[in-house]
Design a protein around this nucleic acid. Sequence first.
DNA 1: CACCAGGGTGGTT
DNA 2: AACCACCATGGT
Length: 218
Amino acid sequence: MIQFSKVYSGLLAAHGPQRWWPADEPFEIMAGALLVQRTTWQSAATALDRLKQKGLLRPQRLRRARLGLVEQCIKGAGFFQTKAVRLKKLARFVDECGGIEGLGASETTALRELLLGLEGVGPETADAILLYAFARPAVVVDAYLRRLSQRLTAAAKAPADSRLRTWVAGVISDAEHLNEFHALVVAHGKAVCRPVPRCPECRISRLCRTGRAASSEI
DNA sequence: CACCAGGGTGGTT
DNA sequence: AACCACCATGGT
């Protein structure tokens, strides 16, 4: 059993407060959550800036925008054809739900189901939107948290996402701390908890040679 | 040149 | 349920 309360305080001490998305509008955060899939935040932020420059970061504008224009704005964020279609579907959905106001009237569980019904919104994106756009308590299970949990437990098999979600939710239950926790896990994953190269001769990390991480790599 | 970056979908076994 | 190929650009 991982002691996530200690993990949280340790990450906070190591990396400091992250304060993700404190200033953006909820719909911009939703769009950002889609755009950042399998790419860097830098690329996603550039795409968001270009969309905003064209006035497309509002549901009513984005849903009516030419697909080619959306593609042009977000091209640098990867999977641009796929993401452009999904962004427009997201915009239509939000607009038809009465905007962020209307959508926010739903209970958290119901809202999560609504989001999961959207094309391109899976568990991680749905929980990120719940947490960062709607300030609802949600555990974001991403590749960084999976890797971190695996190295902490040194288990042969990684815990299932559902179990991981339960563990975290058992210790951190309010949205503000869950917000900060996810941001800290990402910061830690970038700085310390790096993926290990699969090269047989890799001498860089203990984890690569022995299958067990050194304390500095966790 | 190979690999990675704050996933998700659709198809196959 | 567990795999797989695919989507695609930008950085190292």
